[in-house]
Design a protein around this nucleic acid. Structure first.
Length: 868
RNA sequence: GCCGCUGUGGUGAAAUGGUAAACACAGCAGACUUAAAAUCUGCUGGGAGGUAACUCCCUUGCCGGUUCGAGUCCGGCCAGCGGCACCA
């Protein structure tokens, strides 16, 4: 804020209200109260008395926030304002608009905040939600607060647990569709066989354990070997954990991205994360052993070039095949690898390491005996945990072969002029027997057929995606609706939902893999013989389906009524939500998990579309004024509350939309806020004037007269451009058009009331408080011309194309593509007439230098280009 | 290393293949004011020539191509940002 300069004593000290260019701090809270009291943005559901079935639906969704103790930051209102403008615009354009808000309140951040402040997470969560709700209301967002959801509310997580039971009680059939597990029962399958096919299953594979957080984490939550939350080290440990079988949906999660209006970059991120690769399984005999080993390769065409094999150190066969003289070295190597954390393992990845097992395998294609090594560059979790090494045509194998002096063989001829060693692209097969002379794709097909015929392998597809580790050793999450008895798990009846967590005084992590719920001994005991599952669900569980709950947030009988789901999520597109706006940080987390759950619910017949979100837009990060990421330690954090206090909610909303394209990363500028604030003040003064005493009243310039030509034209251009720009989410250019329009209005001595009211309708989605307030002031003088009631209930104005047309247009004359002259011609001028005028121009003739034109291009209404 | 996105004034940016820099910020000058703040008006990419009005040349990261015409389309390179990263 501008500092108070030393002013001479006779100037009366200005109150902060008088210093403001318009009294936003009076009218903004006033209108927020009016909207709330009137439930101005309540959206009726099908079946409600005031529901209008003739209107189309529009479901516009924000990524709901974690109510952290820090409150909103300026990044939140960016996406929220964008959806608010769209929602208000669609409502004015005759849609039934669903625009809700809620709280993603379970999970690590909420629990850590509670531990830090020494309070119960329930209490801190409620307080934080209170704070967030208040902040959002002060920004004037048009939410239907009757649909507010809170993932930690038992009425909500009852259904999160219910969906978990659907996952637990389903499997994926031969067609890749989720089906009830009851279909498998009665087929004579054992309990173990059935359990091994559930979509929610228990696994003892190595998982990501984070000691500092006292919990395991999903692969998606581990970044560079550290926890995404807090950045603590993560190690691999075998633990018994709940997993969700997302891998069964890998192909569909790739394929069904195609029909979605998502940024290509996000689709790509998901495709890469799922990581499909096509190749083949090849079986190798081990010399002197019964057992054989299968490898996965994307280059079966290079089989003749396989000169050794490598197993992951953890591979189950290693113990069997290692010869006595190599046992000590192998054991020592495995120990070293096992003690390394993921972080160390990747840090040390530069240098290849490994040891020879003493065993040999037989290359099925030429009978050669090739040595079997173990090395940590082969991962147990991908493919089969064993590879055939083709050092001639794979960078990693080549590096390994150089370090351990293993033979390198050429089997692919690269195109002219390229070195064959380390050549990994497509070429022609050589030194490869029956493959010689074939291109790489041909050779791949032929060897795959050959392997299949001999029973030695076949074409296969592999995915990088792993199953989703779904349990956490934390207190603040949904308890699993599962009990254990005699070493077996089973679901509790749906009638026992919601399963509430126990009330615990001490809910901190135990520091061991033993979950904190183990401390609640009474709660743990389900019956004399059965105990409850002690793990809780991860943060993502609640956010996997919250958009569905919004459709019918109060329903206590069902997670969402069929009718509400069909109406809001239906519409003939693959995805149900019409527009979803949020940050890019959830590209492979929430956005992948939610798609997975949605597909399961779709297969089971609970939802109408295969995809949840039709159109996705990522808002760009807002940086500090210094161009750096906002952070407390840099001291460049902007608090939205301060901006609202100083310039008002409308200014904050407008500035965040005016900064630049929504999807772009852009730096904050307080000066920029002042710019839009000045614009709003100019709009205010179009309607209002201030007395000597500082009292505002409607300006006498306001008159019930028809708008002249300039005003009409400016107004209709603004209606047109703003409408089009809102659809495109180009809010910055819409606002600049309103600024231009305001400038035209300001130049007029008399302000036609009808024009200003129409302008306020266009402004209202962007700056709803000032628009409603000015409309109300106009209504005191011109009740017949102002909008009755709220602008959000008004109809978006239609522009008149006739008002946009000018009598004359400016035509540019170019000679050889260079601008030489311009003139105004009547709109109706024909091509021939325009050409004639151009050729007659003295400037044009000067630059033609008397030459005859080779070609003349005439673009009516635009330009003439004369080529000489 | 691989994949993707982005490069336009002092700054945020705008531009259906058709006048590059709209709108805004900052800056400068002026009006109002005893003065300041606020407000209003004008100027503001670079270079050259002219007392001047004005005129010419150059300019969208770099190089090339397509086109009557390229910030925009195509190819190559460079830089910044983001993602993945021993995935066989």
């Amino acid at each position: 804020m501008t500092t108070q300069r030393s002013s001479p004593s006779f100037a009366p000290p200005m109150s902060s209200e008088q210093r403001k260019a318009f009294p936003f701090s009076e009218f903004e809270p006033k209108w927020q109260d009016v909207w709330e009291a009137k439930k101005a943005f309540r959206t009726p559901n099908p079946g409600d008395a005031d529901f209008d079935a003739s209107k189309p639906k529009y479901f516009v969704l924000d990524m709901f926030p974690y109510p952290s103790g820090a409150g909103l930051h300026v990044g939140h209102p960016e996406g929220y304002t964008a959806t608010d403008i769209i929602g208000r615009f669609k409502k004015m354009s005759g849609f039934n608009v669903l625009h809700p808000m809620g709280w993603d309140a379970f999970g690590l951040p909420a629990e850590q905040y509670a531990i830090k402040t020494g309070q119960h997470p329930r209490a801190t969560t409620e307080k934080n939600i209170e704070g967030f709700r208040g902040q959002l209301k002060r920004l004037g967002f048009a939410y239907d607060w009757d649909r507010e959801v809170n993932t930690t509310d038992p009425g909500y997580f009852k259904w999160t647990q219910w969906i978990f039971l659907k996952l637990y009680n389903s499997y994926v059939n031969e067609e890749g569709k989720a089906r009830p597990i009851t279909e498998l029962e009665g087929k004579g399958l054992s309990r173990e066989e059935i359990d091994s096919r559930r979509l929610a299953f228990v696994s003892s594979a190595p998982v990501n354990w984070c000691q500092e957080l006292g919990t395991v984490l999903a692969n998606e939550e581990v970044v560079d070997g550290k926890s995404e939350v807090g950045g603590f080290p993560v190690e691999r440990r075998p633990m018994r954990q709940w997993m969700l079988r997302i891998t069964s949906f890998a192909q569909r999660l790739i394929d069904e991205l195609d029909g979605l209006d998502w940024p290509e970059s996000i689709k790509l991120l998901q495709r890469n994360w799922i990581g499909r690769s096509e190749g083949a399984h090849v079986m190798f005999q081990i010399v002197g052993h019964e057992s054989d080993v299968t490898v996965f390769t994307t280059r079966p065409d290079t089989l003749f070039g396989a000169t050794y094999m490598v197993f992951a150190p953890e591979h189950a066969l290693v113990d069997q095949i290692t010869t006595p003289e190599h046992a000590a070295a192998v054991e020592a190597y495995r120990k070293v690898v096992g003690s390394k954390s993921d972080l160390e393992r990747t840090e040390l990845a530069k240098e290849k390491s490994g040891v020879f097992t003493g065993a040999f395998a037989i290359n099925p294609v030429n009978g050669e005996q090739i040595p079997i090594w173990i090395a940590d560059y082969v991962l147990m979790g991908y493919g089969t945990g064993a590879i055939m090494a083709v050092p001639g045509h794979d960078a990693r194998d080549f590096e390994f072969s150089q370090k351990f002096e293993l033979p390198v063989k050429q089997v692919v001829q690269p195109p002219e002029g390229k070195e064959w060693q380390g050549f990994t692209d497509n070429g022609t097969a050589i030194n490869s027997g029956f493959l010689d002379g074939l291109t790489t794709p041909e050779a791949k097909a032929k060897i795959a057929a050959w392997l299949e015929e001999k029973g030695l392998g076949k074409g296969t597809t592999n995915f990088k995606l792993r199953d989703w580790l779904f349990s956490r050793q934390r207190y603040w999450g949904e308890p699993f609706p599962i009990v254990w008895e005699d070493g077996n798990h089973r679901s509790i009846p749906e009638s026992e939902l919601p399963l509430l967590p126990p009330t615990l005084e001490d809910f901190r992590p135990t520091g061991t893999p033993e979950p904190p719920l183990s401390k609640a001994t009474d709660w743990v005991r389900y019956s004399d013989t059965a105990k409850r599952e002690l793990n809780t669900m991860p943060q993502w569980a609640g956010s996997c389906w919250y958009y569905l709950r919004y459709c019918d947030a109060q329903n206590s009988e069902r997670f969402v009524s069929e009718e509400a789901e069909k109406y809001w999520m239906g519409g003939g597109k693959p995805g149900g939500v019409d527009l979803y706006v949020g940050g890019t940080e959830h590209a492979v987390l929430h956005l992948l998990y939610a798609r997975f759950w949605h597909k399961v619910l779709f297969d089971l017949g609970y939802v109408s579309t295969p995809e949840p979100f039709q159109r996705l837009v990522n808002q760009g990060l807002i940086m500090g004024e210094d161009g750096q990421k906002m952070s407390k330690s840099r001291g460049n954090v902007v608090n939205p509350d301060d901006v609202v206090k100083e310039y008002g909610a409308d200014s904050l909303r407008l500035y965040e939309m005016f900064m630049g394209p929504l999807e772009q990363v852009k730096p904050w500028s307080m000066k920029g806020v002042e710019g839009v604030y000045r614009f709003l003040a100019r709009v205010w003064r179009l309607v209002m004037e201030v007395s000597e005493e500082g009292v505002w009243s409607p300006s006498p310039a306001l008159q019930d007269v028809p708008a002249n030509k300039q005003v009409t034209k400016a107004l209709h251009e603004t209606i047109k451009k703003c409408g089009e720009d809102i659809e495109k989410l180009s809010f910055n250019t819409a606002i600049s058009q309103m600024m231009i329009c305001t400038k035209t209005f300001t130049a007029e001595e008399v302000m036609p009331v009808s024009a200003i009211v129409t302008f306020l309708k266009v402004l209202s989605p962007f700056a709803p408080h000032i628009a409603d307030d000015l409309n109300a002031h106009i209504a005191t003088q011109f009740p017949a011309l102002a909008v009755e009631g709220l602008l959000s209930d008004a109809t978006w104005p239609k522009y008149d194309p006739a008002a946009l047309i000018e009598d004359e247009v400016e035509i540019v004359f170019q000679v050889n593509g260079k601008l030489r002259d311009k003139t105004r011609v009547p709109l109706q001028a024909t091509k021939e007439e325009i050409e004639k005028i151009a050729l007659a121009s003295a400037r044009v003739q000067e630059f033609m230098e008397g030459k005859t034109p080779k070609k003349i291009i005439v673009v009516p209404g635009k330009l003439v280009n004369i080529v000489v």
